[in-house]
Amino acid sequence: MQTIGKIASVGAVAVAAAFSLTACGGDDTAAQPAAAPPAPSSSAAQAAQPEGRECTADDVKTTGNFGQAPTITIPDDCDPPKKLITKDLVAGTGSGAKAGQQLSMNYTLVTWSDKQKLDSSFDRGEPFSLHLGAGEVIPGWDQGLVGIKQGGRRLLIIPPDLGYGQGGNGIKANETLVFVTDAVAVPTDKS
């Protein structure tokens, strides 16, 4: 989870809404901000014009079943949502995840502005572990994964204020992040 770990350590250091997308998120892996992106071409600037309607979870298309690397297709006919959106694509079983629990997750990340896959634990064949709600990952994950069940697949559409904020690690400033996450392991509730 190259991107998630690096982003998490930046979040702890930077207090801004940092995004932990590297597998091993220690303070020694803090990422340097990326260089400013080149000025958009006229066609790119035209594509960035607001459409006037915020997208919903149903506007974002995904393929693949739990355990399979998903594809994520972001629409061109609506604007990125301004609030966190979650949608269970596969329900899962057992207890829902709670703050403080250690989860093991697989994920694929697509950035809204360029509609390109930026990172995927599926590609590395190794899930990412985190303690939910502990600030090890971006707030969009800490909030958006609450209640996910083992074997569940969830779509997360994360606005910039709950993501990586000012950018870095290949993520542009004010970027909306789209994840498909698979809950590989969620502890069973003993109560």
Rank of each mutant, 00 (worst) to 15 (best):
F19N: 00
S20Q: 12
S20T: 03
S20P: 11
L21T: 01
L21K: 03
L21A: 02
T22C: 02
T22R: 04
G25V: 10
G26A: 11
G26D: 10
D27C: 06
D27G: 14
D27H: 10
D28A: 12
D28H: 08
D28K: 08
D28L: 15
A30M: 03
A30W: 08
A31V: 11
Q32H: 06
Q32D: 06
Q32Y: 05
Q32G: 03
P33L: 09
P33C: 01
P33E: 08
A34F: 05
A34E: 14
A36L: 05
P37S: 07
P38Y: 02
P38C: 08
P38F: 02
P38D: 00
P38A: 06
A39M: 13
A39S: 08
A39D: 04
P40G: 10
S41L: 15
S42R: 11
S43D: 11
A44P: 08
A44D: 06
A45G: 14
A45C: 15
Q46D: 14
A48G: 06
A48C: 12
A48Q: 15
Q49E: 12
P50I: 14
P50T: 14
E51L: 15
E51C: 14
E51D: 04
E51I: 10
G52D: 11
G52S: 05
G52E: 14
R53F: 11
R53G: 02
E54N: 00
C55F: 10
C55N: 06
A57G: 01
A57K: 01
D58F: 12
D58E: 12
V60Y: 04
V60I: 15
K61L: 13
T62L: 10
T62A: 05
T62G: 14
T62M: 12
T63Y: 09
G64W: 11
G64P: 13
G64A: 10
N65T: 06
F66C: 10
F66I: 10
G67D: 08
Q68T: 09
Q68F: 15
Q68M: 13
Q68A: 09
P70C: 02
P70W: 01
P70S: 04
P70F: 02
T71K: 07
T71Q: 09
I72M: 07
I72A: 02
I72C: 01
I74C: 13
I74H: 13
P75Y: 09
P75L: 06
D77Y: 03
D77L: 12
D77G: 04
D77N: 13
C78N: 01
D79L: 13
P80Y: 08
P80M: 01
P80H: 07
P80D: 10
P80C: 05
P81F: 01
P81C: 03
K82T: 14
K83D: 09
L84F: 01
I85L: 13
I85H: 00
I85Y: 02
T86K: 08
K87T: 03
K87N: 05
K87F: 06
K87V: 11
L89G: 03
L89K: 04
V90R: 02
V90W: 01
V90T: 13
